Amino acid sequence: MSFYFNIATDKTVTADQILEALGRPEVSVDDNKMIFHIPGKSLRGACVYHSDEGYEVGVNAFTPKTDARLTRDVAAAIAWLTGASVVPEDSEDSFSPEYIADYGGEDWVAERFDEAYFLARRPDDAAEGGPLSVAGYKRTFAVTPDMFEQDAGSLEDAIRAVMQVGIDLQTLDDREDIFAASLMSFTPPAAPPQSTLRRMFGLSKPVSNVREPYTAFFIGPDVRTLTPYNETSDPFYVHLSVDQKAVFRLPADDFFAYAEAAGARAYGAQVYDITISQADHAKLMQQAEPA
C-alpha cells in the first residue's frame, strides 16, 4: 500500500528548490528518480512524480515513520513553492501547505507505519512465490515471513528490526569499503551449426539456436561484494571470472547455498555481503558452465 498527496499546478520546481524550501540539511535526493531521503534513517524515501496535472508525492508501504514525515514535508514544500494546495488521497478537500503538517500529524504517521503489519503477517501460502521485494530509495530489499518471527518481544519490535536491516542496506557502500555489484542482462550467442559430416554419420545432436536471456552479476575472488537482488523474472546467474576474459555462469541458487554455508552476512533475502577466497572462487568456477 502507499499514500499520495496530490498537488495540481502548472508550475515546475527543481530538487534543489525543494531541498532549500525544506530547510533540513540532513535530507538528500536522488535527482534521477526524485526520491528524497535521509541517509541512515530512510528506507523507501519520499517519492515525487511530475505529470501534466502537477505533482504526486508518495510514501510506500513498509516504511519507517521518518519517511512518512518526510513525504508530508516534501508535499508541503512543493505546494508552498508553486502557490498550490494539497489534496491527500483520502480526502476530497484541498489544504494549504501550512495545514499539511497538522493533517499529516503523528496519528497519520502511525497509520503509515502500521501498514507494515499487513506485510509482516502474510500467510505462508502467500509467500510461496518467493521473497517480497521492497524498493528502497537506493537498492531493493526483500523480505520473507520468517524474518518477522520473534522469540521475544513484539511484532512491532520485529518489524522495526527488519526495517533497520533495509535501512542499513541503502548506505552500506557509502559507509564501508565494499563493491556493490549491479544486475546486467545477457543473451548468450546462438550455438554454432553442426558440421555436415557429423550430421551424415549421426554424430551430432539436435541443438537449438535459441538462447534464453538471463540476468547476472559479476563477482571476483578476494573482493568484498554486496550482491544485488534480482527484481526481474529472468533466470538468475552469477558470473565468475578472474580477468573477465573466460567467464563462467553459476545458477544463483547454487551461489546462495554457498553464501549461506559460508556464513555471509545477509541483508534480507538473497542479498549478501561476501568475500570469496581464491580457492572457493576456483571451486565455484568448476561447478559453473561457460557463459
Rank of each mutant, 00 (worst) to 15 (best):
N6C: 07
K11M: 10
T12S: 09
A15W: 01
L19W: 03
A21S: 14
L22E: 08
G40R: 03
R44Q: 14
Y49T: 07
D52S: 06
E53S: 08
E53V: 00
Y55V: 08
E56G: 14
A61H: 03
F62M: 07
P64A: 01
R69N: 11
R69H: 02
T71A: 06
I78V: 11
W80E: 15
T82Q: 07
E89C: 05
S91D: 15
S91I: 04
P97M: 08
D107F: 03
Y117A: 06
G129R: 02
G129K: 10
L132R: 01
S133I: 12
F141P: 10
F148W: 06
E149T: 10
L155G: 02
I159L: 13
I167G: 11
R175S: 09
E176R: 11
F186I: 14
F186E: 08
A191T: 11
P193S: 07
S195L: 05
R198Q: 05
M200K: 09
M200D: 01
V210K: 15
I219A: 12
G220E: 14
R224E: 10
R224A: 13
T227E: 08
T232Q: 13
F236G: 05
H239L: 14
K245L: 09
K245E: 15
V247C: 11
A252H: 07
D254V: 04
E260K: 11
D280Y: 08
A282G: 05
K283N: 14
Q287Y: 01
